[in-house]
Write a protein that binds this DNA or RNA. Structure first.
Lengths: 175, 175
DNA sequence: ATGATTTGATTTATTGATAAATAAATGACG
DNA sequence: CGTCATTTATTTATCAATAAATCAAATCAT
């Protein structure tokens, strides 16, 4: 495949990538389909050839983000005392490699669109259950609370990233 | 003042109250000024008599919410070992008496409007500094981290309220 | 009657979505 | 090999809906 062909072949992915960046920085409502199209270099109506609505595009991006995160967590391996720490590192890694997707995933619960709410509920539930089960399986005491704390770390890291306030997440700061 | 006069006298507050409820449940973008007006029982253009834009209305609601929270924290008094706990209770109290305002305050950082972002940054910074100073003044060790944790509790409680997933905030659950 | 309160009518702007047209690529077939 | 047919990719043009904001006029209380 020539370079151009390569580019064109994955239009759907390109659109999802641009959409992820825009949704993450502008949110669902301020991001227009025309914006997304422009970022990719196609026309606005063409976006609807791949996604039947703006909402479906948004959900597709979120879905991909969740899968990536789920996958990243599943491959973490560590002794019980180190498990939470290692999983935290996995999240921080994703925050570097797929920043937009992670920020999006951690903020999507504030988007009041019913379908998005449904996704949020299901997804946060799955994340919680996954982490909980993981913690329990290696015998971490008070696993339920630890799983909650784990998610709350993700939330405040997101807050600190969105507002550019590093002091709010002493976790990730040097030393 | 007659009942009607009483109602009318506080139109501005009424509007802010309805706006708080709608913004909290529908978010900034899905809440229209017509919606707010209808909830109060006035016409849509009249909202603009009190607030020069929808955004200013939103910010006014947020400001009031922050003042309430700030005030509630400032009156908390407890011995060092109990301070964080008591302040947490203060927040939970507000979550009962002024649920909409608190949920709004904890989610506003996801609204990409520049002015709102600015408010969020300033406000979360002030909350953090207030809590931090408070913790430090009574000699709580690792006050910075504790202050972060305090805020992250607020975030996950909000998440669990918005998504109606009580399991995510074991803090508030019975026993 | 005068000033505060409130409304009706309207404007302006934006945006998601559709449909029809065009261009480009692919492959069959003489 | 080249031409025609068919599919795939992409654009142009446009609609319909919604919502914020403006403004002049009307109502109401003192």
């Amino acid at each position: 495949m020539s370079p151009k062909e390569e580019v064109v072949a994955n239009r759907k992915e390109q659109i999802m990538n641009s959409a992820a960046a825009l949704f993450a920085s502008q949110g669902f409502y301020k991001t227009t389909t025309a914006h997304v199209a422009e970022a990719v270099g196609v026309t606005q109506p063409y976006v609807f050839h791949f996604f039947k609505s703006k909402e479906q595009l948004y959900l597709a991006v979120l879905e991909r983000a969740y899968n990536r995160m789920s996958q990243a967590f599943s491959v973490v391996d560590a002794p019980p005392e180190r498990l939470a720490e290692k999983m935290g590192e996995a999240f921080n890694g994703l925050l570097i490699t797929h920043r937009n997707e992670m920020l999006l995933l951690m903020q999507c619960f504030t988007t009041p669109e019913p379908e998005v709410r449904k996704f949020s509920r299901e997804t946060f539930s799955e994340i919680y259950e996954t982490v909980l089960t993981r913690f329990e399986s290696v015998g971490i005491p008070n696993a339920g609370m630890q799983a909650s704390i784990f998610i709350s770390c993700g939330l405040i890291i997101t807050l600190s990233e969105v507002l550019e306030m590093p002091k709010l997440s002493p976790w990730c700061n040097p030393e």
